[in-house]
């Protein structure tokens, strides 16, 4: 009975967030599509076409684009509304006042972040097909698809957890600084434009980028989608995603609780 109402309230909160996002769908699509679009256009089409990058490059780029779009969309989708809610509009107070654990509000926010991250990952598909469709050589088997689904699920959870942490730390006036200060480093050290194993020539850098969850996500995707032998072993990348999810989740939950009951 009690759990039933808690679950109901969770879905109502999810519905509220989705409704608000739905009302801004054009802005949402624009925000989610622009980044992969411009990167795919440049690195997946223009540079290979003019010979600056090898013709095989787009194929290596594709998993990275999926991972990046998923992670960035999920972080953004959770963090930005949370930061605004807590610090500016204080709209969240009404939900925190519901007769359910305050964490239900956090779970609902994360769930919506996860849905958004999936949409982010999905939208990469049509863009990739348009600009680098001929270069893609994916190795997807039935078993792989199940694994791929698991990786995407885990990664979207990681992105929502990271969003929860970021959203409860960053103030609205700092959101503008988030792009150059946080998202850009995550993108450019995130094993999108290179495979992690290729960094062996830069051992220091190779170790350094391991703090970036996107490295594990992209390596796992690269492994599954391309059957790439040069990708990080799947056990490591999966463990990496899992460890990050747990760490960010625990820290994010703690921060959220602090913000919810000051």
């Amino acid at each position: 009975m009690h759990n039933q109402t808690t679950l109901n309230v969770f879905w109502i909160m999810v519905k509220r967030d989705l409704l608000i996002q739905w009302r801004n769908w054009a802005e949402f699509i624009f925000r989610v599509v622009m980044l992969p679009f411009i990167l795919i256009l440049t690195y997946g089409y223009v540079l290979p076409k003019i010979g600056v990058l090898p013709a095989s490059f787009p194929n290596d780029l594709f998993p990275g684009m999926v991972g990046m779009s998923l992670l960035i969309t999920g972080i953004h989708g959770t963090a930005v509304p949370l930061s605004m809610d807590f610090n500016n509009s204080r709209e969240i107070e009404d939900r925190l006042q519901a007769p359910v654990p305050v964490m239900v509000t956090a779970w609902a926010k994360m769930f919506v972040g996860m849905i958004e991250s999936w949409i982010g990952a999905l939208l990469v598909l049509p863009i990739s097909l348009i600009f680098m469709g001929q270069s893609l050589r994916l190795h997807l088997t039935t078993g792989n698809i199940f694994l791929l689904f698991l990786i995407l699920l885990l990664s979207s959870f990681a992105s929502a957890a990271l969003g929860l942490l970021v959203g409860t730390i960053v103030k609205p006036n700092q959101i503008a600084a988030m792009f150059p200060g946080f998202l850009m480093p995550v993108i450019f050290t995130g094993a999108i434009f290179f495979s992690w194993s290729a960094l062996v020539k830069l051992p220091f850098y190779q170790v350094l980028v391991l703090v970036n969850p996107l490295v594990y996500i992209n390596e796992a995707l690269r492994h599954t989608m391309l059957g790439a032998s040069n990708a990080m072993p799947l056990t490591y990348s999966l463990l990496g995603i899992l460890a990050f999810t747990i760490l960010m989740g625990v820290m994010g939950m703690r921060r959220f609780r602090k913000m919810a009951v000051r």
Binding site: R16, R23, R90, E91, E93, D94, Q97
Partner: peptide, 13 residues
């Protein structure tokens, strides 16, 4: 039930 001192209504609804 609470009427807070500040406006904390849901602006997007």
């Amino acid at each position: 039930g609470i009427v807070a001192q500040h406006n904390n209504l849901d602006r997007g609804l």
